[in-house]
Computed example of a mutant assay.
Amino acid sequence: MSQFLEKTIASKLIYEGKIISLYLEDVQLPNGGQAKREVVKHPGAVAVIPITSANKLVLVRQFRKALEKEIYEIPAGKLDPNEAPSACAVRELKEETGYSASFMKELTSFYTSPGFADELIYLFEATGLEKGEAQPDPDEFVEVVEVTLAEAQELLEQKHIHDAKTAYAIQHWLIKNIKRSK
């Protein structure tokens, strides 16, 4: 057992939405004291790093209401109930970009904001891409953009790429290119 474990004494559902649930939890601290924690429960998600045969990264540009601005991101989406992350990655890549991949490799997974949320994103790399027609959800409006590594780095510096999963993807792509050039 962890010396830092916070034992849940009580948990109250505050909000249940389409994507997230918010709980207010009373916890017993390791020193015996008590505290309240606001915890967001999320079903998990996938994100895909699609690299074309011309060594370009496929991004989607979309408006993010929580940020009140448009940003460029790698394709990503929420897991459906009982859906395997690999199946979700294939689905999200096709829906958002129209691309299908002959090779899909799971790279890692990571928690997005462990201070208050349990969202786990599975990160995949997609290669052997074949272009098709995007099929976004009815409430999803995206523009598909292909960028070079230099262009991606510039978008990152200008904060047009401003999310952790896409920044992580660019770093992965950069390291992969450095290794390939040696």
Rank of each mutant, 00 (worst) to 15 (best):
E125K: 11
S113M: 07
E25V: 09
Q34G: 12
E146Y: 01
H42N: 13
L67C: 05
P136C: 01
C88I: 00
T97N: 02
F116H: 13
K176V: 05
A152K: 01
E119P: 01
Q3D: 12
E83H: 03
I9N: 03
V39T: 12
N177R: 09
T52M: 07
A10K: 12
Q62A: 05
A101F: 05
H160D: 14
P50S: 05
V39W: 12
F116A: 08
E146N: 09
A35P: 05
L93V: 01
M1Q: 09
A35N: 14
I9F: 01
L93Q: 01
V40A: 10
F124P: 02
K131Q: 15
Q62R: 09
Q3V: 10
I175S: 09
G98P: 01
E125I: 12
L107C: 06
E133W: 03
I51S: 03
G17C: 07
L59W: 02
E119A: 06
M104Q: 07
P138L: 04
A150E: 15
L156A: 14
T112Y: 00
W173A: 02
K41Q: 09
W173T: 02
R64G: 07
Y72M: 04
E140T: 11
A101V: 07
C88K: 01
C88H: 00
A76S: 14
H172F: 14
A35L: 06
E125H: 06
I19M: 06
L13T: 11
L155T: 08
K7C: 05
P30Q: 04
I51W: 01
A164D: 13
G77H: 03
Q28I: 12
I20H: 09
F103K: 13
D139L: 11
E38L: 15
Q171N: 15
G77E: 03
R37W: 04
P138S: 06
T127V: 13
K65Q: 15
P50R: 02
E6C: 06
R61S: 04
A66R: 09
F4C: 07
S2Q: 07
A54N: 13
G44F: 04
G115V: 07
E92H: 06
Q158F: 09
K176T: 12
L59P: 04
L5M: 10
Q34F: 14
R61T: 03
E38I: 15
K7D: 10
Y23T: 11
F4V: 11
A164C: 08
L149F: 11
P138V: 05
Y122Q: 05
P30Y: 02
A126N: 03
Y99F: 14
Q135Y: 07
L79S: 01
G44N: 08
L24Q: 13
L155P: 04
E157I: 12
E70A: 08
S21M: 10
Q153K: 15
L5C: 06
P85W: 02
V48D: 00
Y99Q: 01
D26E: 15
P75H: 05
L155V: 09
F4M: 10
F141H: 12
W173N: 03
K56M: 10
V60A: 05
P114C: 06
P81S: 09
T148D: 08
Q135A: 14
S102T: 14
A89E: 01
K65N: 13
L5S: 07
F124E: 03
N82P: 00
K69S: 11
G44W: 07
G132A: 10
K94M: 06
A76L: 11
